[in-house]
Design a protein around this nucleic acid. Sequence first.
DNA 1: GCATTATACCTTGAACCACGAGGTATGCAA
DNA 2: TTGCATACCTCGTGGTTCAAGGTATAATGC
Lengths: 117, 117
Amino acid sequence: MSKTTNPNFMNGVPELLILRLLKDHEMYGYELVQAIRTVTHEAISLGEGVVYPVLHALEKDGALKSRRKAVSGRTRVYYTVTPAGQKRLTHLVSNWTKLNDVIASTLNGGAYASLAI
Amino acid sequence: MSKTTNPNFMNGVPELLILRLLKDHEMYGYELVQAIRTVTHEAISLGEGVVYPVLHALEKDGALKSRRKAVSGRTRVYYTVTPAGQKRLTHLVSNWTKLNDVIASTLNGGAYASLAI
DNA sequence: GCATTATACCTTGAACCACGAGGTATGCAA
DNA sequence: TTGCATACCTCGTGGTTCAAGGTATAATGC
């Protein structure tokens, strides 16, 4: 009777990164794709197929707000974080940090000592 | 033409935890399910539906070795890490650490300063 | 003596996310 | 004028994780 209560505990990292980057600067999708690559020194490389859907979902949820802006003939859609988005970001960061701590301590083996074997 | 080169960059954490725990002690599936819960202080709770398939896959890949053992009428399947599994663990840990570092530095905002804006 | 819980193994179907590939369109450089 | 970079988007696939179910034995509770 497996009783797990983690709703997909590892997911949502793209969302986390995107919210975090947008918190500092208003950005548009295409820019984000490259910013993530640059910021993570190529370690993480999210394609447009990941970024755009996340952006749309976050806006639909009220975590982001967008405005269209014409730049030299092309249209860019700039996104900014709403107060709701800010709250969501805080929550995601705290979750990630917690998760990370327990994984790190498990890898270091320290936590296992607490087990009664 | 999105060009991403991360084959599902966030996955494989259950595998990582299982290999890490088995490295210290020979364990059986049901025991692992609870060990993970205990070790992570309930932060991560992998069900049997996660653990058993991972165990089978790892054994099939030669990363684990199993032996059946009868304990008070019940049969337990104990798993140990093979040299190949040890190598795999090392690799997974290094990947996880690297990934983690870039995410952490992104969250801290330090990395963004390296962007030419 | 009987029912429930804990132990111990397992599989399966759905859900979800990330991915790659494709599609449209404009501007600029070779 | 051909190609590449910019800039937006969607869709189908695939791989993981999930909950829920199934089987069977031992121990505990009433």
